[in-house]
Design a protein around this nucleic acid. Sequence first.
DNA 1: TGAAATGTTGGGGCG
DNA 2: ACGCCCCAACATTTC
Length: 478
Amino acid sequence: MSEPGLPPVLLWFRSDLRLADNPALTAAVLSERPVIPVFIHDDDQSGLGGASRWWLHHSLKALSRDIGAFGTTLVVRRGDAPTVLGALIEETGADTLHFNRVPRPRETRQEERVAGLLGRRGSAVHGHDAALLFEPRAVRTQAGGNFKVFTAFWKTCMAMPEPSRPLPVPKALTGWPRSVRGIDVEALGLLPTGVDWAGGLRAVWTPGERGAQERLTDFLEDGVIESYDSDRDRPDREGTSRLGPHLAFGEISVRTVWHAVRTLCAPGSGVTRFLTELGWREFCHDLLLHHPDMAEHPLRPEFRNFPWRSDPEAFRAWCRGRTGYPIVDAGMRQLWQTGWMHNRVRMIAASFLIKHLLCPWQDGERWFRDTLVDADAANNAAGWQWVAGCGADAAPFFRIFNPVLQGERFDPDGTYVRRYVPELAEVPAQWIHKPWNAPPKVLGAAQVKLGADYPLPMVDHTRARALAMSAFRAMSRS
DNA sequence: TGAAATGTTGGGGCG
DNA sequence: ACGCCCCAACATTTC
């Protein structure tokens, strides 16, 4: 127990809304001083989309409850983090700050401002690393640069010492006996105003550390991971972990996931593949750290000359899931309804926006950032550039998905399409991914009138493909 | 972590 | 028996 009179330490929560494997928390507890846990929301700086705001609200509620169980209170404030932290130091006499670094450019800049401001006031500022498996920027080529090819990056990671084991939840947390002014999570105004569009999210997700751990447990049970290698590509199955949003908000640490899989699962192709996906997350963060403008500017500069089209109508149709290509529309509607889209379908839908509609990939990146509960600045930007063919280790631009073939290959029975495009529910599997080819009799029996109940394809695949090729060639010539 | 076009091969039907 | 064509199946190349 701490002596009265000892100055408290500030514990600044950010994208690490958890108590397990939280080195900042552990360090604060070890200091044997009263701990003031703080969360600061900055509406102007957060860059959070609507779906992420919904998630953050519930995740903060969960964290408040969990901290409350220690007899302590999470202090919630809004505003500019360095300013708020400075004010808290004034108010409480705290002389130390612990936080976990967020290895992304925006957050890193914020950390530097905090360190500068608090350092000038004589406070000790301690940043800890727990957001990645391997220390940010520590993975280097032999020449000392950052990797631009994933396989080489991951091979190097796998030759490094295994990631640290996760830290336990501290046994106790001593709070600050005096009350510190804060606001209710509700007052942050993170939930939808007006129309409640979050019903689909509530039905699918449980934000918070408990929910994250349950999701991990579910994934590790029943041998899901054994067939992960193939099932992860099947949107009609529950073959993926769905840990994305929990990782994005730091409700569970990637090291916890890593060691749980390594400890509890028999080695095999599924395990290897899943760990590799965690590797992509590492790679994306490494890329964004070295290319802070990756969400706006293509890594391959020649793509600045790509003749993108400006077509707000087409973009809107894509957003709303009314392209006329069932696998694309199912994905976009799953995203809108649940805040999440299966990864295979993300690739198909993104490819469609970029290569069939020739819309700028940045527009799609922003839409995903606004609608995904697992929106992550690094993963999202890297993923979109990868699909567009202008990123690191990217698919060549001419690798154009055929949405019909992709649908038939990865949703062979049409189960996924039927779930999210109910107007096609009665269309037989043979035609579900290309209803425009179905005999009129079949469509009649399925009670579908194309162009009325469900749109006709907004572009012809073969023609769109040819146009994309010539646009690509135009860019390559210029 | 493609798709489509083009090339090659080999078996069977047939004159 | 032989060559020819057809075409499916597979492989390679091209975008």
